[in-house]
Design a protein around this nucleic acid. Structure first.
Lengths: 217, 217
DNA sequence: ATATGTGTTGAACTCCGTTCAAGACGATGT
DNA sequence: ACATCGTCTTGAACGGAGTTCAACACATAT
């Protein structure tokens, strides 16, 4: 597959596209149910009723199906974020900016908790060929998420230049991510959703206050 | 294996113990070189010069070898932390407490960066049987690491009760972990060690200031 | 020396992702 | 309608993984 545009009758192109979607659908269900380990070429083929080899007519390997599922997960998260009541464009103070950041972080936790296997797949998936780099649309989706964090930061630290602000946005994102991923792992701690939520709130709120203290110093 | 204490001549017990150690050694080398994917039963047996099945005389499965390697990694990190110049028990202010936390976080980053595959194995390893819970000595090692974070926190927020302080220590740990693990992944960002170090410093310093702001409010 | 039961062995089993020779199929010319 | 030909699809087969277990080797006690 990924062959240079060859003569392919519209009929077959249609079938292949339908197979692509069916495979991604089935993979999404498998991952949602059992995580990455629940994804398996033979079961996938059985689920969509195609031949084992047919998968490889449409995707170069299973990794690329995981990318597609992960993309859907990110898109679903973006949709949730977009559906939130947006902070009005009116003048807003630091207090509101901190509240925005806390809300953002809680939305992150909530989504991760509500979609655990899908969410973990985002970070557990390591491509088998480390040379190949990530699809561009994948990176673009990630970037859009950071943008949402940067907006409240502009209010908290208006004098920060773009690069520093972006870096701090990533820092905050990573920090929240750390709490969420370790919390869901129950690897370093087994905590209820309520306690996790408290952790995230405390972290972001404390960071917000620290930022304010910095900028006024 | 794990059979109830049976008649086993001292000679054989000795051989088995030597095999155990040799296997852990070889597994550690494999993981250090190529990460978890570099661990492989047949290569392991070849490396230590034992039969393939001999591994399963001494460990129930490969997962348990990974646990042993991970334990060594944690022990090595503990040793690094213990070797640092200890904060004197003399009266110390908030400034010093924040500096302690920053140092701790940087030690975390440094060790993770210097031992990437070993470190990632700590968090990538998901036991194949999700029912079985983690070995107790494993959890004890993790707990000792949190204790180190709690000490400076006692200075920053003396009025916090034990539970709240422990929780915040875990929160800080997780936040730093998030930056380190995503940074090493180069999944959400590909950053140099210098930038990563800056991120960790900023995070912990900002958290420290935020804590101070809270306690005085 | 022989017998006895424990310890060790590696071929074999199952399951995995991936490939590719063989066959099925669809478009086209007559 | 039929034959032709190039493309697409198929699933048995391949190589490599973790794990098992019947067969064998061995140490010990008699």
């Amino acid at each position: 597959m990924v062959e240079a545009v060859r003569k392919m009758t519209p009929r077959t192109a249609e079938r292949r596209q339908a197979l692509r979607v069916a495979l991604i659908d089935a993979a999404e269900r498998a991952i949602a149910a059992e995580g990455l380990v629940g994804l398996n070429a033979r079961d996938l083929a059985g689920e969509v009723g195609c031949a084992l080899g047919a998968i490889y007519n449409v995707f170069p390997d299973l990794d690329h199906i995981v990318y597609e599922v992960n993309s859907r997960t990110l898109a679903a998260f973006e949709a949730v974020l977009a559906a939130r009541p947006q902070p009005s464009s009116a003048r807003r103070g630091r207090k509101e900016a901190i509240a925005d950041l806390v809300d953002l972080a809680e939305a992150y936790l909530d989504f991760a908790a509500a979609n655990q296997p899908r969410w973990r797949a985002l970070f557990e998936h390591h491509q088998s060929n480390p040379e190949a780099d990530l699809p561009k649309w994948y990176l673009a989706q990630q970037r859009r998420m950071f943008d949402l964090v940067e907006q409240p930061l502009t209010i908290l630290r208006p004098n920060l230049n773009d690069e520093a602000r972006m870096l701090f946005a990533r820092t905050m994102f990573s920090a929240v991510h750390g709490i969420v991923i370790l919390g869901l792992d129950e690897k370093l701690m087994s905590l209820s959703a309520r306690v996790l939520s408290g952790q995230v709130r405390t972290l972001v709120d404390t960071l917000g206050r620290g930022l304010a203290a910095r900028s006024s110093a």
